[in-house]
Amino acid sequence: MHLWNMFVAAILGLVEGLTEFAPVSSTGHMIIVDDLILKSNHLYGVEAANVFKVVIQMGSILAAVVVFWDRFLNLLGLKKNITKEQLYGERLKLTQVIVGLLPAAVLGFLFENYIDSHLFSIKTVLFTLVAGAILMIAADLLRPRRPKTETVDQITYTQAFLIGLFQCLSLWPGFSRSGSTISGGVLLGLSHRAASDFTFIMAVPIMFGASFLSLVKHWDAVTAQTIPFFIVGFISAFIFALLAIRFFLKLINKVKLIPFAVYRIIVAVVLFVLFVYQ
């Protein structure tokens, strides 16, 4: 076990954990940190590096499951001690989550090969970083003065479906799943916290499904040599995603989206200078 390799795994897990659920594009950050500085594909090969990115994403997914554990139990009908008000009153339903997932799941299935072949490049990520920032700024400027939907339990089926359509934008690498869906939710009258909660809940099944399929596809890269590398990255991503999600959910109603949009534009400028303007 090389210490440098474990350091690389821990740093990439940190980057993944801190950026996966914030509306700043984890893809853009991974390009800067991994492709430019750490170059994990040189350690065990390109296929192992791709599997590693799937593994650390699953660490982030697990963190979201932990944060929303009671909510997922509730959705699956497994939570005990549910009051009559919770049972018959306003409550986010599993069918609403499914409705929100359908648009991106269908488009992702149909265009997976095209996305992998044509949209994973520096220039496309640059474009979507800026486009996503513009959407986030527009959402904050055009949102209703008073949200119609204060909590995630008040989301309607129509809102869930329309937020799902916004999530389709995140199929283009660099757009950011949370950036597109939180913006869409805010434009549809959700509070920033309600839009964030729904975004993170939807992210778990769609990210887990995509990660699981990718892991099965590249299972040959999982060897006795790479497993310690994967484990360190997974643990790092889980810990930092757990911290980032809790912090973000406390922060989002106060700072809104524009500060994150400005940060995205800064990341785009850095990418342009490092990779394009040479």
Results as ranks from 00 to 15, higher is better:
74 N>I: 06
80 K>H: 12
262 V>H: 06
78 L>Q: 12
267 V>F: 03
1 M>T: 11
275 F>L: 11
33 V>C: 10
104 A>T: 06
199 T>Y: 08
114 Y>W: 14
139 A>P: 00
164 G>A: 08
148 K>R: 15
20 E>Y: 03
239 I>Q: 06
4 W>Y: 14
225 Q>N: 12
122 I>S: 05
271 L>T: 03
19 T>K: 07
62 L>A: 15
154 Q>A: 15
55 V>G: 05
222 V>F: 06
29 H>F: 04
18 L>N: 03
133 A>C: 13
39 K>L: 10
202 M>I: 07
167 Q>P: 07
109 F>N: 06
270 V>W: 07
111 F>M: 12
102 L>M: 13
28 G>E: 04
42 H>C: 10
226 T>L: 11
245 I>N: 00
63 A>Y: 01
23 P>S: 11
7 F>C: 14
145 R>K: 15
143 R>V: 06
166 F>I: 02
235 I>A: 13
168 C>S: 05
30 M>L: 15
276 V>Y: 09
134 I>C: 04
26 S>V: 02
239 I>W: 04
238 F>D: 00
41 N>R: 13
74 N>D: 13
227 I>S: 12
160 A>E: 08
3 L>N: 11
254 K>E: 13
119 L>A: 00
138 A>T: 11
164 G>W: 07
70 D>G: 15
129 L>M: 14
233 G>K: 10
127 F>G: 13
146 R>W: 07
31 I>S: 01
133 A>T: 09
73 L>S: 07
24 V>T: 01
46 V>S: 11
50 N>Y: 11
202 M>S: 02
142 L>Q: 07
234 F>W: 11
239 I>A: 14
172 W>F: 10
233 G>E: 14
167 Q>T: 02
95 T>R: 13
39 K>H: 13
82 I>W: 05
71 R>W: 10
203 A>L: 08
53 K>S: 15
93 K>M: 09
83 T>C: 12
143 R>Y: 09
233 G>L: 13
148 K>Y: 14
43 L>T: 11
115 I>L: 05
217 K>V: 03
55 V>P: 01
193 R>Y: 08
166 F>C: 02
163 I>S: 01
245 I>P: 00
216 V>Q: 14
218 H>T: 12
261 A>S: 12
256 K>M: 04
141 L>P: 01
106 V>Y: 01
118 H>R: 13
71 R>M: 10
253 N>K: 08
215 L>G: 08
68 F>L: 13
181 T>E: 03
33 V>G: 06
130 V>P: 05
73 L>P: 04
1 M>Q: 13
55 V>T: 03
35 D>T: 11
25 S>C: 01
259 P>W: 10
221 A>F: 03
265 I>D: 03
68 F>Q: 08
